[in-house]
Write a protein that binds this DNA or RNA. Structure first.
Length: 636
RNA sequence: GCCGAUAUAGCUCAGGUGGUAGAGCAUCUCACUUGUAAUGAGAAUGUCCUCCGUUCGAAUCGGGGUAUCGGCUCCA
């Protein structure tokens, strides 16, 4: 007799050893149909696993994230089988689940997206057969025998300990896999191959390049549709396209990966930085600026010459070798070293909007998201050991304030000591605990990335979430145990002795260019009033009203509002359409009526028109909206 | 840098099978003087990414290169 405790604490008894699916069926057939796997003590098993002793089980269903991952993993197996059927010489390597789906790296002839319909058709055949996923336990020797024609699998198997290995079989297709899997292929109701690219075996450029096929799968057709719609929406918002359409920035062949900002783009840029400066001043930062071109000696001292040289642009001046800065820190260190500091000067928060250049691989460049020249909203904060906690909390609060201004949420990740690192165990522990304590006090929950820190110190990363729920790593706080040492930075403590300051690097926007691009996509080009490059456009109804319209324009401009007048002799309809598609937040029409009564007719981007508004009634809320940098779409 | 796709007017795109290019929008001119998402007519606009080759003849076929896009990779 076996007693099984379910997650609602009820107990079911069985005479023999039931499989998990039997247990699920004993609850209801409908429930069983939605079950994917079971979880015992945090370990996940297939549904056809027999339960041989009393335990507490939790079913993983189509509603769970874990269930979706299992489905996608199974779909990867189906794709692999389809490819093996169609491409006889193909050799499977690995096929994991990723954020929005799965991929499988396969050693095979190169395929293009045109081949997808073929592969998908083959996958559908396999799904229709409702093949059962069978788990087979084998010894290492048996596994090596099974995959004797596949050097990749052999490499993988040999790396595993001499434990029992599991294979999964659907029909005659067999793959090395830890599992678990869905009960049968028929449960894959909707899937789609997404893209294909090259990927090196073990991410190693010296190894063979494989074909990486990406796909995704969902339990419900509606979810797949929703996912595809988000991709379509993201395409519409593509900052590369919107940037050209809205005349914000461009790229040129003569400066690959280095953006040119146009007049309208600069209006946004300047508004953004004006805000940045305001918040930083409020948070007690000073602003500094260091040179772009610095002597090689400095880069040797900082360690960049040794560790980052392949990404640095260099030049020879007066027979001396120079490098264009890829980071601001060494310059910042020089500034600190210029005078002597006391603990009373701490915390010293020195900001710098620094222009850095990094030689990224040509294939990695992508609009404003990946560039070779960009501005970092950097700052170096020097402090005593005791100040770490409070300083980190201060930075986190500043980031929270600034992100929320754009309606961006975020999550936090803490990265700890990597394998290759400098410093003593004690230093790392102290530093990591400092960050941890700050995070705990700050209160928002955070994830830990073990071993993902920089080699010179642990770090906190903030990942913002945009309007399409995509996440972007922007903010980072990095504790640096190396540079103060390398530059022999000191301060005088209370004890009148010299001490080494604690130093952190931190950015809020990260790369301002990239953040700009994120904002374009986040707002889909419809910037809030305070950021909009043109805040108001005035449309005179006929040529006679142009001069009056210009009077109104200068009235607005004197208030610091960015305002244009559309003086073309075009129909009002056309001018309105033009203003709308350029996402100008406030569209003002001037006709005889408005001129005679000194009122305005105001159209907002939602298409609503308000007539007969007096100048004061208009200006008051508009100026307030701009000054407070409101996100609210409602202006009037 | 690697794999794949793409490259035609300022923009979006047409141009089976080789005979040196076309539409819409934008621009300019003229007429219309417009009341809330495209007034009409006309004009101008091209190294068909680039180089080499095949051919009597190349936007079109072949090869090299460049850039862009999707990935890989890199990320002190």
């Amino acid at each position: 007799m076996i007693n099984i405790t379910l997650s609602d604490k009820s107990i079911k008894s069985f005479q023999d050893y039931p499989s998990a699916i039997d247990v699920a069926r004993s609850i209801s057939q409908g429930f069983a149909r939605n079950c994917i796997a079971m979880e015992i003590n945090g370990n996940i098993f297939d549904l056809n696993n027999q339960i041989k002793k009393d335990c507490k089980i939790k079913f993983i269903t189509t509603k769970d994230d874990k269930g979706l991952e299992i489905l996608r993993h199974s779909c990867a197996h189906v794709m692999a089988e389809a490819i093996q059927n169609l491409y006889k010489d193909s050799k499977l390597t690995i096929g994991p689940v990723v954020k929005d789906g799965f991929y499988y790296d396969i050693d095979m002839e190169s395929v293009s997206e045109d081949d997808f319909s073929n592969i998908e058709a083959e996958m559908k055949k396999i799904i229709k057969e409702k093949k059962e996923f069978k788990r087979i336990s084998v010894t290492k020797a048996q596994a090596l025998e099974t995959f004797k024609d596949n050097p990749y699998k052999i490499e993988l198997i040999n790396e595993l300990l001499d434990q029992e290995l599991t294979l999964y079989k659907q029909g005659s297709f067999i793959d090395l896999c830890r599992g678990p899997h869905i009960p049968h292929t028929g449960m894959i109701k909707s899937f789609k191959l997404m893209k294909v690219s090259g990927a090196y075996w073990r991410a190693d450029q010296s190894k063979k390049q494989l074909q990486r096929l990406y796909g995704t799968a969902f339990f419900d057709k509606k979810d797949l549709k929703k996912y595809i719609n988000i991709i379509i929406e993201a395409k519409k918002r593509d900052h590369k396209k919107l940037g050209a359409k809205l005349d914000l920035y461009s790229f040129h062949e003569n400066a690959l990966g280095m953006p040119f900002f146009h007049a309208k783009g600069m209006e946004i840029w300047n508004s953004l930085l004006e805000y940045w400066r305001k918040e930083h001043k409020k948070a007690g930062y000073i602003e500094t600026k260091t040179p772009v071109l610095l002597n090689k000696n400095l880069w040797k001292k900082s360690g960049h010459w040794e560790n980052y040289r392949k990404n640095m642009y260099t030049s020879v001046i007066d027979k001396e070798e120079y490098a264009i800065k890829p980071m601001n820190c060494p310059g910042g260190m020089l500034l600190y070293g210029l005078k002597s500091y006391s603990y009373r000067d701490f915390p010293l928060r020195a900001g710098e909007i620094g222009l850095v250049h990094r030689h990224e691989l040509s294939g990695a460049l992508s609009g404003l998201f990946r560039v070779r020249a960009f501005h970092q909203d950097d700052a170096h904060i020097f402090m005593t050991l005791e100040q770490i906690e409070q300083e980190i909390i201060g930075v986190l609060k500043l980031m929270e304030t600034m992100y929320s201004k754009f309606g961006l949420g975020f999550h936090i990740e803490l990265s700890t000591r990597p394998e290759k690192s400098i410093g003593t165990d004690e230093q790392w522990e102290q530093a990591t605990n400092g960050l941890k304590n700050a995070l705990d006090k700050y209160g928002q929950k955070y994830f830990i990335n073990k071993g993902d820190g920089a080699f010179y110190g642990p770090k906190i990363d903030l990942h913002i979430k945009d309007a399409l729920e995509r996440t972007w790593q922007c903010g980072t706080i990095q504790l640096d145990m190396a540079l103060p040492e390398r530059f022999d930075l000191t301060y005088k403590g209370k004890d009148n002795k010299k001490h080494r300051p604690i130093m952190i690097h931190r950015v809020v926007f990260g790369s301002i260019e990239r953040f700009f691009g994120i904002l374009v996509e986040h707002f889909a080009g419809k910037f809030p009033l305070w950021l909009a490059p043109v805040q108001i456009i005035i449309l005179p109804i006929n040529d006679d009203l142009v001069s009056y319209s210009k009077e109104i324009q200068s009235l607005f401009e004197n208030q610091g509002i960015r305002c244009e007048v559309d003086i073309r002799t075009e129909s009002l309809k056309k001018k309105v359409r033009n203003a709308q598609i350029n996402y100008i937040p406030l569209i003002i029409t001037i006709g005889e009526k408005e001129k005679n009564t000194s009122t305005l007719s105001v159209r907002t981007l939602d298409g609503k028109v308000r007539m007969g508004i007096s100048l004061e009634k208009f200006l008051d809320p508009v100026l307030k909206h701009i000054k407070q940098r409101k996100l609210d779409k409602k202006i009037l």
